[in-house]
Write a protein that binds this DNA or RNA. Sequence first.
DNA 1: TTAAATTAATTAAACGCTTGTTTAATATTA
DNA 2: TAATATTAAACAAGCGTTTAATTAATTTAA
Lengths: 206, 206
Amino acid sequence: MTDKKLHIINHAVELFAEKGFEGTSIRDLAARAGVNVAMVNYYFGSKEKLFESLVEERASYSRGVLDEIANNASYSDIEKIEHIIDAYINKLFTNRKFHRVLHQEMMLSQRETLAQAIVEILYPNSLIIKGVIEAGIKKGVFRKCDPPLVIASIVGTINQVLLSKRMCIKLLDKEADYVPYDDPSFAIRLSDHLKQLMHAHLLTKS
Amino acid sequence: MTDKKLHIINHAVELFAEKGFEGTSIRDLAARAGVNVAMVNYYFGSKEKLFESLVEERASYSRGVLDEIANNASYSDIEKIEHIIDAYINKLFTNRKFHRVLHQEMMLSQRETLAQAIVEILYPNSLIIKGVIEAGIKKGVFRKCDPPLVIASIVGTINQVLLSKRMCIKLLDKEADYVPYDDPSFAIRLSDHLKQLMHAHLLTKS
DNA sequence: TTAAATTAATTAAACGCTTGTTTAATATTA
DNA sequence: TAATATTAAACAAGCGTTTAATTAATTTAA
């Protein structure tokens, strides 16, 4: 991927996150990126292919970290969950604009194949968490719970505060100019909450 | 609100949920609703005002039920939480297309005043839940937790399985033609999960 | 090393099409 | 008869995309 293509993609992520795919015009994007309107089609072929390139280029942001945690034998099962929570929060906060774009697209029923591709990007993360939970249940360390819905709770909680800044601020009772995603203490607060939630829900009383 | 306006709004909700606001053209909508393209502007003035009318008309779907539960003296605090979970699942499942439209709009940074209005629609629900949780903490019935994030977990879990059918199916490991929202047993499963989650998280060990 | 030849990058302008909206004529209802 | 509802057609503006001309960069050859 050339520098120029990356430059366009980086601005595209921002605009798509703000206005959505249909809501962003190529002229908007070209202006924001400081390039001629024709450059998008010159480099990517079409607006839709630009979007696909964007997803492809950024998709790799997810690999590796969760896997390492899940396979680290020195961690107990609950420690794995805790580290996964931290890694996931960190990952989503860092890539929150791209994450927003993925969710917008996943919610819609247009461009079916692309929506399917996005699910395939996000699903492996769920699968890793699922594996850890099921292993814990099997050993009797975790209570008998509903692994897919436990994942929904972890991911859903993060998404709930990540996807709508406005709602997040209102919920936390903060002033309008507060940016929760720039505040490290908020990430810690979220992490603490999720860890306590999972401790209480997963661990068998002993 | 006349029958004709409601007829148009009902079809608009469906299309907006599928394709988003920008992705839906008035010609699409007119065709789906079986009316002339000019009727939308005749009745609503503009596409954007149609959207506002839609939000206004459907916004009332949320009032009342949660309030009644929160104020019902015959319920214990944890019972209130349980009933709120059921009421909320029922409400969101029943109005899931409208709920999807709200979330799409809330994620974007266009039409700021409308996005703000949507937050004001959804926030009262959170406020009611918050009140119940804080009351429970004060009495010592509930553990000291983080009420705003507890709400994020409840609402976020439901949204996670509600807003992307594709992801939900993948997570549950179901076949592609499965429609979780038409399956009463799934609503029960989700309810059970959330109740167990909140039991474990909120209740003090005694 | 320099000049020509070739390829790549960039531009402003235009293309055809779709968009939301309006108009002016017609049909329906009160 | 007067107000309301409905229609097909047209409107200007914006859309994604293409074109053809120009500039910049790179390669080739002497």
